[in-house]
Write a protein that binds this DNA or RNA. Structure first.
Length: 381
RNA sequence: ACACGGGUGGCAGAGUGGUCAAUUGCAACUCUCUGUAAAAGAGUCGCCCUAACAGGCUGCGAGGGUUCGAACCCCUCCCCGUGUACCA
């Protein structure tokens, strides 16, 4: 298996029009111009996003021209993908641009924005906001309502009598036009983006007269198919501090281990296979999960940070000692512990603090140092 | 514009005059167990006050009204859906 095989297989869900067609182009030695776009609708990237970043890095390492597209134009339209209901609120370009800054800092840990073959950063509001109505009509001409409405989620909404807002309905056209504006050979994105990316394929064919490849990356899931990275309220953020990141990865299900190794680390595939064998041979999964956490932390932060995070983890959670790194310093006037927690903003209300106390979740370790629940440490200044 | 249906806690979805701080499911949180995993079990899940029992306040789109008493009835307004109409 060579680099091209790996590029075509690892972390790949589907390739349009076909894997064979793309392979042929790659084997010919041609360097492609490709991109993946991200709508910066939230400030934090989570580890699910790493799937795409890793993939972009593979392309970059093979010498292809990679564009990291900030969707500050498409973000204004509001991507309906995966949304069961219509959006209530749309974001402004300034908000989106502000979020994008954070994104870039985080992505820089995986792909290179500098060096001999740097990843290029573009903003799609640069061309989308310049479009005149006539231009949009020209774009729209390439699609029929039937094509757009056949998406499952729209069919479901129709069946349930829910609205489909015209604004979100037009989203695929905008994303599709990005491919034309940048004149790319390939677009990469999560499987949830398939429809939008194929819209771009149509447009590129009609407006530029060439084939645009589409490569989809699988969503990061455990073996049962549950999404990882962003379950409500428990986001594993790419920029989480090392100890926290390590601990959060440890709390993933065992069945997620191999998928994570494959999709979001740079570990060679034969090493991943070895890990899988060890699991099969009955080795305690906690060892492998630690290796996974260490791998991710060292890629996102540094090997030294990973080592330290692991030691912290073992001390804190396995030996039940206090983790220096996880202590949050807060200030609150002296008084009852429940009142202090509320004042410091650790707990939302006195009722809730009371509840935690009743349930035995508040433990005083030493004066002014408390353990709240399983993994929270608070020190009052 | 008209007709009909609808707006309830993070989500889904009950409730249609007192027994509703609001059934139930999901999510979340805590504890036990453990490998901080999973599974399982026990519990919590508006706010304030109390050591505790008790008590108080706010709350079912917004505002007003009827009533001893309203998420529930009436009026006005706002929003959503469906259908019909309009489309010089």
């Amino acid at each position: 298996m060579d680099k091209i095989d790996e590029l075509l297989a690892r972390g790949v869900d589907k390739i349009y029009p076909s894997k064979e067609a793309l392979e042929k182009v790659l084997r010919s030695g041609k360097k492609l111009r490709l991109y993946q776009g991200f709508d910066p609708t939230g400030t934090q990237l989570h580890i699910g996003h790493l799937v795409g970043f890793r993939k972009l890095r593979q392309w970059q390492d093979l010498g292809h021209h990679v564009i990291f597209l900030i969707g500050d134009g498409t973000g204004q339209a509001g991507d309906p993908s995966g949304k069961r209901g219509a959006r209530e609120k749309f974001m402004e370009r300034d908000e989106l641009r502000a979020n994008a800054k954070d994104y870039l800092m985080q992505v820089a840990k995986i792909v290179n924005f500098e060096g001999s073959n740097p990843v290029e950063i573009l903003y799609n509001s640069d061309w989308l906001n310049e479009l005149k109505l006539v231009d949009i009509l020209h774009i729209a001409q390439n699609f029929s309502v039937q094509q757009l409405i056949e998406r499952d989620m729209y069919q479901e909404r129709l069946k349930r009598g829910e609205q489909i807002n015209l604004r979100e309905f037009l989203y695929p056209l905008l994303q599709g036009y990005d491919s034309v504006a940048m004149d790319v050979d390939l677009e990469q994105g999560g499987t949830d983006q398939t429809f939008n990316m194929l819209a771009g394929r149509t447009l590129v064919k009609n407006m530029l007269g060439k084939e645009k490849f589409v490569m989809t990356t699988p969503l990061l899931t455990d073996a049962e198919g549950n999404k990882i990275g962003k379950s409500e309220g428990n986001v594993i953020g790419v920029t989480d501090p090392p100890s926290e990141l390590f601990a959060k990865i440890m709390s993933l299900k065992d069945s997620a281990i191999i998928n994570c190794f494959t999709l979001i680390t740079a570990l060679p595939l034969n090493s991943v296979a070895q890990k899988e064998n060890r699991l099969k041979d009955g080795e305690n999964p906690i060892n492998l999960k630690k290796e996974l956490a260490a791998q991710i932390v060292s890629e996102v932060h540094s090997p030294a940070a990973a080592k330290k995070a692991q030691e912290e983890f073992e001390k804190t959670f396995q030996k039940r000692e206090v983790a220096a790194d996880l202590i949050e310093e807060v200030s609150a006037a002296p008084g009852k512990i429940t009142d202090r927690l509320v004042e410091a903003g650790i707990v939302a209300s006195k009722s809730e603090a009371k509840r935690l106390e009743d349930q035995g979740a508040i433990e005083e370790i030493e004066p002014n140092l408390y353990r709240i629940g399983k993994r929270k440490f608070i020190r009052f200044k």
